[in-house]
Simulated assay, not measured.
Amino acid sequence: MSTTIPQRDLRNHNAQIIDRVRAGEAFTVTRDGVPVADLVPHVPNTKPPVWRSSDNIPRWDEPGANDDVALDWLADIRSLDEFIDDTIRDPWEEEQQG
């Protein structure tokens, strides 16, 4: 849970608030009563994201291929489709229509 503070408190008491964040406390900063930012302790990224190597993926037609591994990999790839917009658009055409 975080403590809500107005932006002016962050400005006026920056050093004290940063010390509290460093100690593990979190803050939600507001401007005119509306939340605009979260101030949370930094968590270093200890490892890069892990992607499966294509060397470890059996071919579909390979005799004795581990179908579960191949199907898991395929499911991973298909799950990325919702995050990738591969629609081809012509920005010049859109500008002329709009």
Rank of each mutant, 00 (worst) to 15 (best):
A23I: 04
L10G: 09
I5P: 09
R89I: 15
V36M: 01
N66W: 10
T46D: 06
A23V: 04
I84Q: 10
E93N: 11
V40C: 01
G98I: 04
Q16H: 08
I18N: 02
W73N: 13
P63W: 04
W60I: 10
P48E: 06
D19P: 00
T46V: 06
I5K: 03
V50Y: 12
W92V: 14
N12Y: 08
E25Y: 00
R20W: 03
I84S: 05
T4N: 03
P63C: 03
I88F: 01
F83E: 13
D67M: 10
I88T: 15
D19I: 02
T4D: 05
D81G: 04
G24D: 05
Q7A: 11
W51I: 09
Q97I: 14
D90L: 03
T46E: 09
L74R: 13
A70G: 15
D68V: 14
D76N: 13
G24W: 07
V29M: 06
G64R: 08
R89K: 14
N45T: 15
D86M: 08
N66V: 14
F27I: 06
G24T: 01
D81H: 11
P48L: 07
E62G: 02
D32I: 02
L39V: 13
V40D: 01
P35K: 08
P49Y: 00
S79P: 03
D85E: 11
R22W: 05
R20T: 06
W60M: 04
N12E: 15
I88D: 01
A15W: 05
E93S: 10
A26H: 12
S54K: 08
G33F: 07
R89C: 01
E82W: 01
D19L: 02
A75L: 09
E25Q: 13
I57M: 06
T3V: 14
L10H: 11
P6K: 07
W60Y: 09
N66L: 03
E62Q: 14
M1S: 13
V29T: 06
A70V: 09
I5F: 00
L71R: 15
T28V: 14
N14F: 10
R22Y: 04
D67N: 07
W51G: 12
E82I: 10
S2Q: 09
F83C: 07
R22H: 11
V21T: 09
P35V: 11
Q16M: 03
D55W: 03
D76C: 05
E82C: 06
D38V: 06
D86T: 12
W51C: 07
V50Q: 12
